[in-house]
Design a protein around this nucleic acid. Structure first.
Lengths: 189, 189
DNA sequence: GACTCATTGTACCGATCGGTACAATGTCGG
DNA sequence: CCGACATTGTACCGATCGGTACAATGAGTC
């Protein structure tokens, strides 16, 4: 059997970090090459579509991680509150308690959004939808659940921005603590 | 008396729009020149420090607008709730109900933060502080007011991200409506 | 060893990057 | 009209951009 994409996951993780730190325009092939240890020859071998394909693959990779670690628990947990708890844990883990920034959120802000509009809309849309479903199953009325879900996802994005602006990780952890209460989870001190 | 900076305000507004749409790295001098109708000669005459000085001036310009139209009402209104109402109105107006994105928030996310860290921290810090003061004057306990203010500013930033990701302006207006209720303002339907 | 194909390094492309130099204008007060 | 100075257009700089071409190398199969 043929080996498929040797450690493509790891590679995408490294490239994601470059995009996260420098943005789409700022992430030059030189920086990506330096971070990954690969020359242009290799990069264009793995991503014939160049920078745009790299970014698209990185978004898909992140989307997959959230699908497995955040959306799936929301969807599949028998106890919806347990699923929400897992969502918050996964979120805190992914963003390293505020040290990391949301690449997809950053892409949504500037012109690079036009290139990945579909993927970006899909990512956030599924997050909100799955959270709203879980909230509805946990007892909220459907309309209320939708609003609350949208509010929660926005709160996470905003907290990431604010935490980075203030250079204060506590901003993010405070936001998660408020969310836990607001979403009906037992307050843990 | 010497005329100082003929229509510098207007100029900064145009440049701000370029940075907003393309990000710091993506906003090339060619784009800025095209948008303003100025050649490099003129641009470097007004901003000898080049792109970095332009971005710094743009941030200061935005900061000044918020100082006058958002922070001042929060600080000076006799009725704190009226000040908060003005804050929300100014915010909705500035971001054009979600059509516009927060340039300072976008700068906070990628590496350009390092260049303007002080200005960025100051902008968000003052927003949160002044809102927290107004909330405290409107009856909230100090600690609670601080958390609520932080939550509100983060909610605005997150809503801008989400609105742009979903390409749906209603996301932003819904967030403002929720905020109005959450901050103790009479719900207007 | 020979064939295949994945992987890599290097040289190179034209375009554009941010920035500088400077001469040519415009626009004043005197 | 004159000098002073603000403003502008243009040409140019070295560096870097994203992308291409291609020969060399690696590893596996037969």
């Amino acid at each position: 059997m043929r080996r498929i994409a040797p450690d493509r996951d790891q590679l995408l993780g490294i490239i994601a970090e470059v995009f996260r730190e420098h943005g789409y325009e700022g992430a030059s092939l030189a920086l990506i090459g330096e971070a990954t240890g690969l020359g242009k020859g290799s990069l264009y071998h793995f991503f014939p579509g160049g920078k745009e394909e790299m970014a698209g693959a990185v978004i898909a990779h992140i989307d997959g991680w959230f699908e497995d670690n955040v959306f799936a628990p929301l969807r599949d947990s028998a106890d919806p509150l347990a699923g929400i708890e897992q969502m918050l844990a996964g979120t805190d883990s992914y963003f390293r308690s505020g040290r990391r920034v949301c690449l997809i959120g950053a892409f949504a802000l500037d012109e690079s959004r036009d290139l990945f509009a579909g993927q970006i809309r899909d990512y956030f849309g599924r997050w909100v939808t799955h959270l709203a479903d879980a909230l509805a199953r946990s007892g909220h009325r459907p309309g209320e659940a939708s609003e609350l879900a949208e509010e929660a996802v926005a709160a996470i994005q905003g907290a990431l921005t604010l935490a980075r602006a203030a250079n204060d990780l506590d901003v993010f952890s405070r936001a998660l603590r408020r969310l836990r209460m607001r979403l009906g989870l037992p307050g843990k001190m």
